[in-house]
């Protein structure tokens, strides 16, 4: 079967977010700024991924898997642009929208593995797990995650620091945060509090994200 068009994927994503993650029953065509005979809908209707009832567009069970994977690709793309490429804000969102459509035919799996199967996007929304994530969980590989992914009370070893500039790196080192040390995350909100050695430190999210932990 031919690939869905980019526009059609975006419709699926919006539907997923509103109806599966949110609690709406379908959504108004006007909310998605679509006409009933829009080009991107034809393909979706033909594959029976969605149906239209009185101006409302509904996600059918047949379309759920595709929609979930589209959301997954979008949020993985956000991780890539914002965390790895360091493109932030509006620009980051735009770039992510372009990248997500390139993440097909196993590229998403490779990216997901490279990013170590992240569970949330930079905005804190869940990334639907793919087969690779389930497999990684099953095999129990320790995995390396940013400190922000740990639960309060969880501890681990510092694997590496991904500080983007020298100043941040110096700050982390001045707190004794160095690869090889053990770290205990004590609290996540309103700031991150962790313990290294016998000292406690409070840092904001931008610093906590730089510390990568082997669980």
């Amino acid at each position: 079967m031919q690939q869905l068009s980019e526009k059609a994927e975006e419709v699926l994503e919006s539907l997923w977010i509103l109806t599966v993650e949110g609690d709406q029953v379908g959504c108004l065509l006007t909310d998605l700024q679509l006409e009933a005979d829009a080009e991107q809908l034809k393909d979706l209707l033909q594959r029976a991924y969605v149906e239209i009832r009185d101006n409302r567009i509904l996600l059918r069970p047949e379309g759920e898997a595709e929609a979930r994977m589209a959301v997954r690709r979008h949020r993985l793309a956000e991780r890539l642009t914002m965390d790895i490429l360091g493109i932030e804000g509006e620009e980051g969102n735009e770039q992510a929208c372009i990248f997500e459509h390139l993440l097909r035919q196993g590229v998403d799996t490779k990216l997901c593995t490279l990013l170590n199967h992240p569970s949330t996007c930079p905005h804190g929304n869940p990334i639907p797990p793919g087969d690779c994530c389930t497999e990684a969980r099953r095999s129990g590989s320790p995995g390396i995650v940013p400190l922000t992914e740990l639960k309060a009370g969880e501890s681990g070893g510092i694997a590496y620091l991904a500080a983007s500039d020298d100043k941040k790196m110096q700050k982390l080192m001045s707190m004794g945060v160095l690869p090889g040390s053990d770290i205990l995350l004590m609290q996540k909100f309103p700031s991150y509090i962790f313990k290294v050695g016998h000292s406690q430190f409070a840092v904001d999210e931008s610093l906590a994200r730089q510390i990568h932990i082997r669980r």
């Binding site: 100043k167 941040k168 700050k171 707190m175 700031s191 509090i193 000292s199 406690q200 430190f201 409070a202 840092v203 904001d204 931008s206 610093l207």
Partner: peptide, 8 residues
């Protein structure tokens, strides 16, 4: 950027 030692 915020970082601060929390003394006992």
């Amino acid at each position: 950027v915020f970082y601060m030692e929390i003394p006992p």
